[in-house]
Nucleic acid binder design. Structure first.
Length: 551
RNA sequence: GUCCCUGUAGCUCAAUUGGAUAGAGCAGCUGAUUUCUAAUCAGCAGGUUCCGGGUUCGAGUCCCGGCAGGGGCGCCA
């Protein structure tokens, strides 16, 4: 990766300047290498001299000149120049750039990958919707973010596990069971009243009907065991649907982890026992509390209710005990909806209480999605049944569009999902623009005449047009985009990168021909567009989108 | 009341995490097709980055104080 080479050159230059006394001794600040927006500023630039000015006690421009003189020559770099007030601008060597086409072609689907995460096991836990209703658009956002992030981490060498936590225990499940049982009775024509906080969605009515049709009056009596049966049947059905809906947007999991299993395996008991041992619990008002306020949380929280039933929080502690102490993940990334934000300081306190390094646990909070349809704003609420499900959205705008749309926004931004607009604009969605670039290349490659063949890679030197250089420059950046997106856990950079790459290709395409020109140039350009196709495919794969050969 | 996120072009969002002239898409306007796919390209227009202070060589980005929107602050999950 060229950015690494520039880093080394800079460190070497600073080192030798300090050794020869041209610069005073001090520890180097951040190297700060970036892509300038303006091509006149080179292909890469560093503001290192500006950052050194204070410690060096010298004019930054002067520092830049000293460094420039000390920078060793490298085959990747054609020239280094100094620009006021103290930037160092690097221009890539053009023949080295052209050689990268062969590099991309030989690496193929692994181009862009790196091994910075080698030997590190990372768990990404996301979606984890209660199995009491369908996946809606808000969940979809987290699902798409999580799956892409997992792809990025894999591409950077991490050992990744994608996990879905099934809340199949506790209050919500009882409530679900009761609601479903009532719907079941009602569909048999019996009188029954929905519980106060029951699940009112239409899907519950349908599900109750299904059970009635299939099992008849088998569960009609209000016995605890029948309620449990109903709950199990219902949850299974819900999970089946959830799995289906997720696979429609190309989201799969390595493991589905049951909350109930934490109790069956005694993990729950061990976790709570450890908390007690470490002195982070207290008995108060006939309940067991976690004394998080002593560990940085703003309040204490109940673990075991007066009734003896554990809270959701308590099983979540057991779950994290399982993640870190039993399964020993090096890192865990939890992707949560913003409505769980208050839970973050609590979990950090839990980490400390369990004696696990807090930095191993990271959170991405996804802001909630608002829906706009027909000019009015809908609130997403599962309980009232006022839901726009993920599968409904996919049906309207398509899985690729859906993925791209959710991915292109940072999780911090709360987004308005305007259904009417998304539907109307679907054909002009950037996703088509990107895929069209891919399909165009595929189309050219299909038309290559059989008479055209050659393996002499020196043809590459014929690629001297600015549009060709732009394309190559963009492709060379791809590994850097992957690495920085993985490091910052920000997949949304991928969408913008891919759009730029597609744009560079379309520009090239309109100005230059690949076929029907002089043979050697044609061969060089065939390699160029093959490389472009490779990068587009790799990028789209990372984003979980399809690559159409024809459009 | 308090904590978290957000506020950037008419709209939806970026901005390499403090860098050089704040960028894309959509919407609007003008032009381009005997050509490997026009689902494309070229151009025009569009900005007090919510407001006010501060930090420094440099602030959309960091700090303080406001304003506005969303979310959290349960023996719910």
């Amino acid at each position: 990766m060229i950015i690494k080479i520039i880093e080394e050159l800079l460190i070497g230059a600073a080192d030798s300047a300090q050794k020869t006394g041209k610069l005073p001794r001090f520890t180097l600040p951040e190297l700060a290498i970036e892509w300038p927006q303006n091509l006149e500023h080179g292909d890469y630039a560093s503001s290192l001299p500006l950052k050194m000015a204070r410690a060096a006690g010298l004019d930054p421009y002067q520092i830049a000149e000293i460094l420039r003189e000390e920078i060793e020559t490298a085959e990747e770099i054609e020239s280094v120049s100094v620009a006021p007030p103290g930037f160092l601008n690097f221009k890539m060597d053009s023949s080295w750039m052209r050689s990268q086409i062969q590099e991309i072609l030989s690496k193929g689907e692994t181009f862009g990958n790196s091994d910075i995460g080698l030997g590190q096991t990372v768990q990404v836990e996301f979606v984890s919707v209660n199995p009491t209703g369908p996946i809606h658009v808000g969940h979809g956002r987290g699902a798409i973010l999580g799956s892409t992030l997992a792809n990025l981490l894999k591409a950077t060498g991490h050992n990744v596990q994608k996990e879905y936590y099934i809340n199949d225990a506790g209050n919500q499940i009882n409530n679900f069971a009761r609601s479903l049982w009532v719907r079941y009775l009602q569909s048999l024509g019996l009188e029954a009243e929905m519980p106060e906080e029951g699940y009112l969605g239409q899907y519950m009515i349908n599900l109750g009907e299904e059970i009635a049709n299939k099992y008849g009056e088998k569960f009609i009596k209000d016995e605890p065991t029948n309620l449990e049966h109903i709950a199990e049947i219902g949850m299974e059905e819900m999970l089946y649907n959830i799995r289906n809906d997720l696979s429609e947007v190309n989201v799969q999991f390595d493991k589905w982890f049951s909350e109930k299993s934490l109790f069956e395996s005694k993990t729950y008991d061990k976790a709570i026992e450890l908390l007690k041992q470490n002195g982070h619990t207290a008995e108060r008002e006939e309940a067991l509390w976690f004394t998080g306020s002593l560990l940085g949380d703003n309040r204490d929280s109940v673990l075991v209710r007066r009734t003896g039933a554990p809270t959701y929080f308590a099983s979540d502690i057991a779950y994290h005990y399982d993640k870190f102490i039993k399964r020993e993940f090096d890192r865990v990334i939890n992707i949560w909806g913003a409505d769980h934000q208050g839970h973050v300081p609590r979990m950090n306190a839990v980490m400390e209480a369990l004696g696990v390094d807090e930095n191993k646990l990271e959170f991405i909070l996804v802001q909630l999605v608002t829906l706009k349809k027909g000019g009015s704003t809908l609130r997403v609420s599962k309980r009232t049944g006022d839901i726009l499900t993920l599968s409904e959205v996919i049906e309207e705008v398509g899985a690729d569009s859906c993925r791209y749309f959710f991915l292109s926004r940072s999780p911090d931004s709360q987004m308005d999902f305007d259904m009417d607009l998304a539907k109307k604009e679907a054909p002009e969605n950037p996703v088509y623009y990107i895929q069209y670039a891919y399909a165009r290349i595929a189309s050219i490659l299909r038309d290559i005449p059989s008479s055209l063949s050659g393996t002499d890679q020196s043809y590459g030197k014929l690629l001297v047009e600015p549009e060709e250089e732009n394309l190559i420059r963009q492709m060379v950046r791809f590994p850097e985009v992957i690495e920085s997106s993985a490091k910052t856990l920000e997949p949304h950079h991928l969408t913008h990168y891919t759009l730029s790459l597609a744009s560079d290709f379309h520009e090239f395409y309109t100005k230059h021909r690949v076929l029907g020109i002089e043979d050697n140039l044609s061969l060089a350009r065939i390699d160029l567009i093959k490389a472009t196709q490779t990068v587009l495919r790799n990028a789209l794969n990372l984003m979980g989108m399809t690559v159409p050969e024809k459009m």
